[in-house]
Design a protein around this nucleic acid. Sequence first.
DNA 1: ATAGTGGTTCCAGTAGCTGGAAAGTCAAGC
DNA 2: GCTTGACTTTCCAGCTACTGGAACCACTAT
Lengths: 128, 128
Amino acid sequence: MNISEASKRSGLPAKTIRYYEDIELVRPARAENGYRDYADSEIERLTFLRQARHLGFTIDQCRNLLVLFDDSDRASADVKALADKRIKEIDRKMKELKALRNTLSTLARECRADEGSDCAILEGLKKS
Amino acid sequence: MNISEASKRSGLPAKTIRYYEDIELVRPARAENGYRDYADSEIERLTFLRQARHLGFTIDQCRNLLVLFDDSDRASADVKALADKRIKEIDRKMKELKALRNTLSTLARECRADEGSDCAILEGLKKS
DNA sequence: ATAGTGGTTCCAGTAGCTGGAAAGTCAAGC
DNA sequence: GCTTGACTTTCCAGCTACTGGAACCACTAT
């Protein structure tokens, strides 16, 4: 299977698939003409990568997930540990965003938002 | 004022301050010896940048904010528009994170997390 | 034979810094 | 005067995770 078909099936751009090969996340066979030749198992791998990336796992975390993915003897607890870690990351990020949103909307609320040049937002941002 | 003092007062690493000069966000004077020499107004600018960046404004958005910051005739409504845009971005991001969290925790909940190799998470990720 | 659509490699650029090398400057201590 | 150490300068490289583009090769259809 050529790369464009692999792209369609996995949902990843061809460019990204080549990049994933570059950083050794996938190792497709090569046809006689030098074209990459993807097996079904590699489509699964690529799809896996797309999903994991979509869930915000970093490439490095994906690498770890793939090791577990490949290891038929893995303990599912190990996988769950990674997922939980990611959930904690998300929670942290959400908390952060909430705080930012608060600060910003407080500033915005104090802003008269008119033709005048007085601006609570700019004032708020220039201090310490 | 030397860069290390500017760093202390603005809360930005010296490296970052130099970088901001590189991309023309600040233009400190130079002393005879070639050292950068920061005025108080530039500390205000740098602090402003730190705060704005901390609130998640991109460098480009910061550039726009600085134009307004510099323009004593600005309308505060213009500033508020940028802040509101950023708030919307934050809301979008939070929504996204919530969705991810949901997906992940659903998968994690289905995972038995034991010594066994069956793993709902890995299974979930490999399908389209 | 030619055109068009694939595929290949490699190089550069994105955002926003950060680290490190090599070299110049300054103040303090001996 | 000399050395040491802390600062400073510039410049180049690398980080994440791709993405765009050039130059060239392969395949198919007309």
